[in-house]
C-alpha cells in the first residue's frame, strides 16, 4: 500500500493508525508562528466507529489502508453470518455481526448495500438510506385520527421497532429512513 504524507491528508482518505484502518474526517493544518507546522487530524476508526484526534508533524506519513466501498446485494443470513453478493461478478462475501452492526435491523433480502471491504473482507455494512419493510405487529389505531400526534410503536419484518402514525395498520409496508430510524411514509399496495 502507498503511504500518504500530511499534505495529502484529506477527508475520506483511508489510512492505517495503531494497526486499525481509519478514514480521515478532517485535517486542520496548524502553523504557529514561524516554526514547526502540524496537522491536527480527526479520523474515524473503521473497526470501532470511534473518532480519534491526533496531531502529526507536517511531513509525517501514514500507511494507506486497503479499504474499498462497494455496492453489494444482501442475500440472506444464516444466523451467524450475513451474506452479500457482487451483482456483476456474483462473488459472495460473508459479514459477521460486528461488521453488520446496527445495519442488520434494516436488511431486506435483495436490497443493495454499501459494504466496506478491508483487505477484501467486510468491515462495515451501510444499509440503503430508505428501506421498505412490512409491519408485522402494531396496535389498531383509532379511526379518523390522521394527525398522528404521538404515533405508536410498530414491529417490522426484520424485528426493528419504529414509531408510526396511528392510522398505519398491520400488513402495510412502511418506508423507513435508516439514518434516523424514522417512519418516512407507507407504500400503497
Amino acid at each position: 500500500m502507498a503511504s500518504y504524507s500530511t499534505s495529502e491528508f484529506k477527508s475520506g482518505l483511508k489510512v492505517m493508525l495503531d494497526g486499525d484502518p481509519c478514514a480521515i474526517i478532517e485535517n486542520e493544518f496548524v502553523k504557529p508562528g514561524k516554526g514547526q507546522a502540524f496537522s491536527r487530524v480527526k479520523l474515524r476508526n473503521l473497526k470501532t466507529g470511534k473518532v480519534w484526534e491526533r496531531t502529526f508533524k507536517s511531513g509525517d506519513s501514514l500507511e494507506g489502508a486497503d479499504v474499498l466501498d462497494v455496492q453489494m446485494q444482501y442475500i440472506f443470513s444464516d444466523g451467524e453470518f450475513w451474506h452479500f453478493m457482487d451483482t456483476e461478478t456474483f462473488e459472495q462475501k460473508q459479514a459477521d455481526e460486528a461488521a453488520v452492526g446496527d445495519a442488520k435491523q434494516w436488511l431486506k433480502e435483495e436490497d443493495m448495500c454499501e459494504v466496506t471491504l478491508y483487505n477484501g473482507e467486510p468491515l462495515n455494512v451501510n444499509p440503503p438510506n430508505f428501506v421498505e419493510l412490512e409491519i408485522v405487529e402494531t396496535d389498531p389505531g383509532l379511526k379518523g385520527d390522521t394527525a398522528g400526534t404521538g404515533g405508536k410503536p410498530a414491529t417490522l419484518s426484520t424485528g426493528a421497532v419504529i414509531r408510526v402514525p396511528l392510522f398505519v395498520q398491520e400488513g402495510e409496508i412502511a418506508k423507513v429512513d435508516t439514518r434516523t430510524g424514522e417512519y418516512a411514509g407507507r407504500i400503497k399496495n
Partner: peptide, 22 residues
C-alpha cells in the same frame, strides 16, 4: 496536550502556543 512525540523545545513551545495559548 496531544502533540506528536520527538518534538524539540522550540516546536513544543510553538505547539502549546498554537493550541492552548492562542
Amino acid at each position: 496536550h496531544g502533540a506528536p512525540e520527538d518534538l524539540d523545545k522550540a516546536a513544543a513551545v510553538d505547539y502549546l502556543m498554537a493550541t492552548t495559548v492562542e
